[in-house]
Amino acid sequence: MASQADYKDRQFLAVIGDEDSVTGLLLAGIGHVTSPPDNQKNFLVVDNKTENSAIEAAFERFTTERKDIGIVLINQHIADRIRYRIDTYTQAFPTVLEIPSKDHPYDPEKDSVLRRVRRLFGE
């Protein structure tokens, strides 16, 4: 299904989330900024002012353009803002995982994995 070249260099996690979620994941040591002149970050801090197009662009960058990312973590309430993009995402790499945030607890109804489960059982 996935060739060796697809996953060999995917050694980073990427995050799209609110400030607290990103702070937590960076504290855990997954934050990475590529060497200059690129200076590409593997995270995006989203607040109320961030536009959906910026979120979508970051999602596109992490999933399609960059070949060094293995897992993309995204806050569930932010994933809701680009839900159509998340639901139609079918690539083998990277894996997209929705995580809860401080103000928006995890909702199994919206989780894309559990939605797939319901679809499989014909609901």
Partner: peptide, 21 residues
Amino acid sequence: YYGQDYYDERMQATSRLETTI
């Protein structure tokens, strides 16, 4: 506030993914 104002702009990941098929 402990947040993005303090992020190091040259941060390097201290833990990395290892993927096996």
